[in-house]
Lab assay of single mutants.
Amino acid sequence: MTEYKLVVVGAGGVGKSALTIQLIQNHFVDEYDPTIEDSYRKQVVIDGETCLLDILDTAGQEEYSAMRDQYMRTGEGFLCVFAINNTKSFEDIHHYREQIKRVKDSEDVPMVLVGNKCDLPSRTVDTKQAQDLARSYGIPFIETSAKTRQGVDDAFYTLVREIRKHKEKMSKDGKKKKKKSKTKCVIM
Rank of each mutant, 00 (worst) to 15 (best):
R123Y: 09
R161D: 06
V45L: 11
R68Q: 10
T2G: 13
L133S: 08
K167G: 05
L6N: 03
F141L: 12
N116M: 15
L113V: 12
L53K: 10
G77P: 01
V109H: 03
C118N: 08
F156L: 05
A59K: 00
E76I: 11
K117F: 14
R164C: 07
V7M: 05
E98F: 03
Q70G: 12
Q70I: 04
D126K: 10
H27E: 05
E162T: 12
D54S: 14
V103K: 11
G75M: 03
D132F: 06
Q22T: 07
V7F: 03
K180E: 05
A155N: 02
D153H: 07
S39I: 00
T158F: 10
L159N: 02
Y64A: 01
E91G: 03
I24L: 05
S65V: 08
G10T: 01
L6A: 14
E107Y: 08
Q131G: 11
P121H: 10
N86W: 02
N26R: 10
G13I: 07
P110E: 02
K165N: 07
L53H: 04
T2Y: 13
G75C: 04
Q61E: 08
A59D: 01
P110G: 03
Y32T: 01
T183G: 15
I55D: 00
M188Q: 14
K16S: 11
F90G: 10
D119W: 03
Y40C: 00
T50H: 12
F156Q: 02
V112I: 09
G10S: 13
K169W: 04
F156M: 06
Q25I: 04
H166K: 10
V81W: 01
Q131T: 07
E162F: 04
A155W: 11
D173G: 11
D47T: 10
K104G: 12
T74P: 05
M72V: 03
R73N: 12
I55K: 00
V14P: 14
T144F: 04
Y157G: 07
T127N: 08
D119R: 14
N26M: 06
I36R: 00
V45E: 13
D108G: 06
V112Y: 11
T50F: 08
V186M: 09
R123S: 11
I163S: 04
I139H: 03
C80A: 06
K5D: 04
K16R: 01
H27G: 08
D154N: 06
S17K: 00
M170G: 07
Y4C: 12
H95R: 13
K178S: 06
D126P: 08
G60D: 01
G15D: 01
P121Y: 07
Q25M: 06
K172P: 02
V9E: 02
E98S: 04
A83L: 04
V14A: 12
V152L: 13
L159T: 08
D132W: 07
